[in-house]
Amino acid sequence: MKEFADSLESTLPPDTWPTELKALWWDANGNWSRAHESVDSLSSPKAARVHAYLHRKEGDLWNADYWYSRAGANRPSHSLEEEFRWNLKELLGF
């Protein structure tokens, strides 16, 4: 988690990170569009979960629910911040 937080001071996410983690990095840096572009063409459950979070953040709940379904999940009832942290922990292996 500290590595992720520290990386936000950089201009780009680390090249060695998986695309889903880079998408969260872009989102945390205020670039929703770049985050969405990162996962838009991916089909893994992890990518679908990040994609769903991004659409939920955007306010497009119908589209978010579609992606949660693709991830085998339901839209969570907790805050977006909590969902971001959940996704981050999943991608970092915590």
Rank of each mutant, 00 (worst) to 15 (best):
L24D: 04
E9C: 02
W32N: 00
S77F: 09
L54R: 02
L80E: 13
A5R: 14
P76A: 00
H36G: 08
V50C: 00
S77G: 14
L88G: 04
S38E: 12
R56Q: 11
D40L: 15
H51K: 09
D65K: 12
W26D: 07
A48D: 04
W17Y: 10
S33L: 14
L21C: 03
W25V: 11
G30I: 08
H55K: 06
L12W: 10
E9W: 08
N87M: 08
L88S: 05
R49S: 09
E20H: 05
A64H: 04
W25M: 09
T16Q: 10
L80Q: 09
W25H: 08
M1Q: 05
E20G: 01
D40Q: 15
E37D: 15
S38M: 12
G93S: 05
F84C: 06
R85Q: 15
K89H: 06
F4E: 09
D15K: 13
H55W: 11
D60Q: 06
Y53W: 09
E82K: 11
P45D: 03
W25Q: 10
W25A: 07
L21P: 01
R85H: 12
S41N: 12
N74W: 11
Y53M: 11
T11W: 09
A23Y: 02
E37M: 11
E9R: 15
S41C: 04
S33A: 14
D65R: 13
L92G: 13
F4G: 10
E20V: 04
E3Y: 01
L21S: 07
L92M: 13
E20W: 05
L8S: 09
D6L: 12
A47L: 06
P13M: 05
G72K: 02
H55E: 12
K89A: 10
L12S: 12
N29A: 09
D40P: 00
E9S: 14
D27R: 12
L88C: 07
K2D: 14
P13G: 07
S79H: 03
D65W: 01
K89N: 14
N31V: 07
E90S: 13
A71D: 02
W67E: 02
S79M: 03
Y66D: 01
E37G: 08
S38C: 06
L12V: 12
V39L: 04
S10K: 15
A64S: 14
H78C: 08
N31M: 09
E3F: 02
E3M: 05
L12K: 15
